[in-house]
Design a protein around this nucleic acid. Structure first.
Length: 287
DNA sequence: AGGTGATGGTCAC
DNA sequence: TGACCCTCACCTG
């Protein structure tokens, strides 16, 4: 489920639930028991996302590093009145449970869950390319790599050292939105095309954070922007639920053989570096 | 009831 | 290139 927008939303949820307060930590599954014991009772200073990585600073110069991978889930649930954290049943293999008087957060199936030093946390950040959701992001750093790479733009968009936070859905959809051939080598991409991709991701990803779902069809994107501008509060995402404000619709993703919204040509599919790419062979022809 | 693939990534060969 | 990590939704029957 997670691309960068999911992790940024998660960091916000964790901050609202726990930041500045001591947290109870446990590992019902047991695999993370030692680290949970070290976390237990410490003040959770703040959570931040960098691409698909979650970094939570904890008192005592320690950082909790979580990467959900493809199948992981970190469900933050507010407690109903009178319910204590220990009353919430543990369902499945919960690697880490964070609890307070107000919330329970259960981590399942992560690719990474580790307690690391500040230095190690910085090295995680250093390995990542710019993240369109972060204020400190510099798109020129990504362009420097893209413009001298023989790899295709679709591979480069998935390379977290080039740009952080983009996954398979956003890469397929953003290339379709700008009619860019996914097989075009980075070094043959015009800088104006890159600037357009970056600006679009800066526009799209915050909508994904706000609504808890990937929005890439222009009518949905504009409707989401309109609602946010009008001050509408998106529904709060809790537990394992996903955003359902808008129907789950894409232009290319998982639409192999179906008509392109623009030209009716059939959406094509191919495995690229182990992941399924979707694109319109007509709109996204090399030009 | 069982199988499969998935919005990810690493590592060994 | 494929095994693995190890969860869940969505098929098939």
């Amino acid at each position: 489920m997670p691309e960068g927008h999911t992790i940024h939303a998660l960091a916000g949820r964790l901050n609202r639930a726990y930041a500045g307060k001591p947290v109870r930590a446990s590992s019902p599954q047991g695999r993370f028991a030692d680290s949970a014991a070290q976390l237990d009772g410490e003040v959770l200073i703040g959570a931040q996302a960098a691409g698909k990585h979650l970094l939570v600073e904890v008192d005592g110069d320690r950082w909790l590093h979580v990467h959900l991978g493809l199948i992981g889930n970190f469900a933050v649930t507010p407690l109903a009145d009178g319910i204590r954290p220990e009353d919430v049943p543990v369902q499945g293999e919960v690697r880490l449970r964070l609890a307070s008087d107000t919330h329970v957060a259960d981590l399942r199936g992560p690719m990474v869950c580790a307690l690391i030093t500040a230095q190690e946390a910085h090295s995680v950040l250093d390995r990542l390319g710019p993240d369109p959701l972060r204020a400190d992001a510099d798109p020129d750093e990504a362009w420097a790599r893209i413009s001298r790479s023989g790899k295709t733009i679709t591979e480069l968009l998935m390379d977290q050292a080039v740009i952080a936070g983009v996954g398979n859905v956003y890469r397929c959809e953003v290339l379709w939105r700008h009619r860019i051939d996914p097989h075009r080598p980075g070094r043959e991409l015009r800088q104006s095309s890159w600037d357009t991709i970056w600006a679009d991701l800066v526009r799209l990803l915050p909508l994904g954070v706000a609504y808890g779902q990937i929005l890439t069809l222009e009518p949905q994107v504009e409707e989401a922007e309109r609602r946010l501008a009008a001050g509408e509060e998106p529904p709060v995402i809790t537990g394992r639920s996903l955003g359902t404000t808008f129907p789950r619709e894409f232009a290319t993703y998982k639409r192999a053989g179906e008509p392109c919204p623009t030209c009716d040509s059939r959406i094509r599919t191919a495995k690229v570096a182990g992941r399924t790419l979707y694109w319109c062979g007509r709109c996204q022809r090399r030009r």
